[in-house]
Design a protein around this nucleic acid. Structure first.
Length: 274
DNA sequence: ATTGTGGCCTGCCCGC
DNA sequence: TGCGGGCAGGCCACAA
């Protein structure tokens, strides 16, 4: 599902193929998908006529800046995909359909130029557009999102920032890693992969890590994020294929344990994750 | 403030 | 073959 690695792929796609293009029209057929009390006409007024000038990301939030000063924030939930013209941001997502149904296009920007131009857009299908296709409608669109409500991005987080994110909390380590206000970008699959690599049990109190364990966690966080960006998906870790009934630890063969931690289904190795 | 829970969304898959 | 129930998790509202 879209965690940091997928959204980074979306960001790169937008940066590569949507920057410099002028927004000619906005289609927002689903009011539910517009967050913060924003209406379709508000999005129209904010974006139409302006040009995309930057594609940024903070955690799982994609930020598209315009030369009009407004910023479009895109969230992808668990099943949201980004496509520009005919190109999808990622090959596939776990837990969602592989189909790309037009009715699942919850938000679309039509560009004035490029990829055939607006006049050809209807004939050329999806050219000249940036689309959010989301079967389950768990994503959403925000205007000028409050970036300060998110913690530091998990890609490039410093040991000090990670320590601050964990704080002196007695909450489970995994719950703290998933808390986007403290550390932005880690989702359920990446959290399990990361803790498996770091050899830390997900239900450990966040503040109980020794200095050596904290260093291990930081190193594995950086490595895991970079690895999954390279592989192109949060589900492409080494643990993921074993996260199912009967699954065993790829490292030592121990049957994996399963429980709900931090409100999410959690798989871990009871042997080497302590 | 901190932490946990439940609900929302809906496609898909399993078992009958 | 159709159908019902359970499942997936990001996010938010809400409660203790």
């Amino acid at each position: 599902m879209p965690e940091l690695p997928e959204v980074e792929a979306y960001r790169r796609l937008a940066e590569q193929s949507a920057l410099g293009r002028r927004i000619a029209a906005v289609e927002a057929p689903d009011p539910w998908f517009l967050k913060g009390g924003v209406r379709a006409c508000d999005v129209d007024a904010a974006l139409v006529g302006s040009t995309l000038v930057a594609a940024r990301r903070r955690g799982k939030l994609l930020l598209l800046d315009t030369d009009g000063g407004r910023t479009l924030g895109l969230r992808f939930g668990m099943t949201g995909r980004l496509a520009v013209d005919g190109t999808a941001g990622v090959d596939q997502l776990l837990y969602t359909s592989r189909r790309d149904e037009p009715v699942w296009d919850r938000f679309t920007l039509s560009f004035a130029s490029g990829a055939g131009g607006l006049a050809l857009a209807s004939e050329a299908g999806r050219l000249g557009r940036l689309r959010v296709n989301d079967p389950r409608r768990l994503g959403g669109v925000v205007l000028d999102p409050d970036e300060g409500s998110l913690g530091p991005d998990a890609l490039g987080v410093t040991p000090k920032q990670l320590a601050a994110a964990l704080g002196r909390s007695a909450a489970p380590l995994k719950a703290r890693l998933l808390d986007q206000a403290r550390l932005a970008g880690v989702g359920n699959l990446m959290a399990d992969e990361l803790l498996w690599r770091a050899g830390l049990a997900p239900q450990r109190p966040a503040a109980s890590l020794t200095p050596a364990e904290a260093r291990r966690l930081h190193r594995q966080l950086r490595r895991t994020v970079e690895l999954l960006i390279d592989r192109g998906g949060s589900h492409l870790g080494d643990l993921t294929p074993s996260r199912l009934p009967g699954g065993t630890c790829p490292r030592d063969g121990t049957p994996l344990a399963r429980a709900t931690v931090g409100g999410r289904t959690t798989w871990w190795c009871p042997e080497h994750q302590r």
